[in-house]
Nucleic acid binder design. Structure first.
Lengths: 379, 379
DNA sequence: TGTTCATGGAGAAACGTATCTCCGACGTCT
DNA sequence: AGACGTCGGAGATACGTTTCTCCATGAACA
């Protein structure tokens, strides 16, 4: 009561602010209890009889009391906010949701975070530094960090848990989740080979992220193992026009492939357009697969076989790992600067992909009816 | 210096925490200046010689000092965070990015916020209340608030700026942005009529949001003005299956329409499928338009004419309005409880839409060749 | 009748920053 | 030589919580 009176006195004498948002002190005063009691009652802590609890809650409700998130964060050191960092390519403004993968992944991540009482804020790695330092994060999800990503290193140095989607190249993270890109690519190549492909080409990227690197390596390894000469074109994945050009180049080669796997979402339509230019029929003359989450490929002519990375599952897993880390050992953090700690074993997790087989990668009678017209109205 | 020594003394005596993150006090101590000076130097305020400024900055950098966002927020009352609220329908988990409109709008909003130094956090209206009150928001963007939306009222009561995407039915907002739905619908109906439609049907929703309401009203008004009997089916827009059923019902009616406009994104494919079931050719027997941001409709057979609401422009505008409100009169807020204030004029803004005309709404020779087969290989 | 325990709750110290107030010192002008 | 303006900076307070510590009260117990 004294505290309350004190508070009220201070308020009225020093300033004459209109319409202050009710604080915990006001609730305490109105309920005739101490601040401690209000806090305990509202947060379900302490030992209080139910009547006190309900009374305080009622008063708080009546005053429209909303606890200050900032004060709580300052006091507890936890904001309930986690960041989702998407590494932007080059100077592109903001490629989030550009690819369906990001959109799906972000949605799942947001959802998973909310389920556990956290909110998620999307922060492109390239955004102004003041934005970054202005938001109190409990941890961060990083999508596809590049090798030696300075941002990840910085976050980690601050003692924040960092979980990455995509096996981290050479930066310290708390945990990571990734698809089994190696197995996925091998599966696709085998699938194409089984459909009759003899010379499988690859449309890949020039950047150093894990996805591109692992996939390309898997392709090269496969080529070695089956004795095929590699046929690939690499282009900067962030540039949509470059993709179309690269697709064209790939099909223009004298040693033209009879099947192509494209690593990026738009490759399917690009390759289809290029095939049309060269009068190649899909799947008769050219088998096509691309990695995409978009359902447009179910409606193209012909429908294109796609590899889904299951971004929802990834997003959910990543967020749950992050929150586990946040809540698990927030005080027992193995002191990032303590380089001697052997506790550095990073837990990684591989998740399966799904190959959605459509017409573009199937020749019905394997080799004979290459140019046989399909019966109309088949669909 | 005294303060610094004092601080340091307190630190070492009271607790022995390992690895404290450097605070402003540590920087002050290391630089041999006061806290005030550090704060001023880092924030570019106060009157300080450049040498002091640079020295302090250097020390801060060396110590890896990161100002506590929570403390700053508590002190200044500004978090640099704005919320993006998507009203979820029913008990659906989280329909964000379900429709391309939301995805595009959210992306643009995030981008616009970042450009002005704010971060954006997506919060479904239905999420746990504790999440809501746990994040310090400077303001909120609300997508399509329902009539008397309690959440909006609550936010507004707290004195937070609220800007809505979609003209608010009956809840107080700081500003709003919307498409000119009336004009858009009229434009579509005229377009269809000009293409030869005599009986235009509507696929609409059962919810009370502005978009649905205004669009339906525009349709009904148009019907009255041209003397056509309204032909529409309404269904709960959040249920994907219900959309297919409603589309089917609409085409099953004895007074079957010869053109349909669907208000929601999936209506195009639903209507196309229904038309196929009834052996109606599009556009010969049935003209089709639907509202969608998805580019799948460029690749359907036939391609479907769509109305784009230009979500990017909306998202950008909404966020800029919100930030203007936040920065404009943060202290001169016209006291929400002061109901007598005549300052309640809410600034609204209508933005244009774009009709992307494709084959589904065009009959080449207007009325005569209703059933003439198209030449093959036209595309 | 003293001792112990559980109950219910109050006081006060942080959390780390921004900022308001004020103070000394050093020209400069009259 | 005193009044005064400016520069550079120090002190202290408040932002609104959470939480640690501790105290009063009454009941149970020997």
């Amino acid at each position: 009561m004294t505290a309350a009176a004190n508070h009220h006195g201070r308020r009225t004498t020093t300033r004459t602010r209109r319409l202050e948002r009710a604080g915990i002190r006001d609730v305490a005063a109105a309920a005739g209890v101490s601040i401690t009691t209000v806090s305990d009652a509202l947060n379900g802590k302490g030992r209080l009889p139910d009547e006190t609890r309900t009374k305080v809650r009622e008063v708080a409700e009546r005053l429209g009391y909303r606890p200050s998130a900032a004060a709580r964060t300052l006091r507890t050191g936890r904001s309930g906010l986690i960041g989702l960092t998407v590494t932007t390519y080059g100077q592109e403004p903001f490629t989030f949701t550009e690819f369906a993968y990001f959109a799906e992944m972000a949605r799942a991540a947001t959802s998973a975070a909310l389920n556990r009482g956290y909110a998620l804020v999307v922060l492109p790695a390239s955004s102004r530094h003041d934005v970054w330092s202005n938001v109190a994060l409990d941890g961060t999800v990083v999508i596809d960090p590049s090798d030696h990503d300075p941002m990840v290193a910085d976050l980690y140095r601050q003692g924040l848990p960092v979980v990455s989607d995509g096996k981290p190249g050479n930066c310290p993270v708390t945990a990571w989740v990734d698809n089994d890109h190696h197995a996925a690519v091998l599966g696709i190549l085998d699938h194409l080979a089984q459909a009759g492909a003899r010379r499988i080409g690859l449309l890949t990227g020039t950047s150093t992220d894990t996805y591109t690197r692992l996939s390309t390596e898997a392709y090269l390894g496969w080529c070695r193992s089956v004795g095929q000469e590699p046929l690939y074109e690499a282009y900067p994945a962030h540039d949509p026009c470059a993709g179309a050009v690269a697709a064209d180049r790939l099909l223009a080669r004298p040693d033209r492939p009879d099947a192509v796997y494209g690593l990026f979402d738009p490759n399917g339509t690009d390759l289809l357009a290029a095939a049309r230019r060269y009068h190649l029929r899909v799947p008769d003359d050219l088998l096509l697969v691309c990695c995409s989450e978009s359902d447009v490929y179910a409606a193209t002519e012909p429908p294109i076989t796609t590899l889904s990375l299951k971004p929802r599952r990834i997003g959910t897993t990543v967020v749950n790992l992050l929150i586990d880390a946040i809540e698990g050992h927030t005080s027992e953090n193995p002191s990032p600067t303590d380089e001697t700690a052997t506790d550095r074993r990073v837990s990684g997790q591989l998740m399966p992909t799904e190959l959605i087989v459509r017409r573009s990668s199937q020749r019905r009678p394997p080799r004979t009816t290459v140019s046989a017209p399909r019966p109309p109205g088949e669909e």
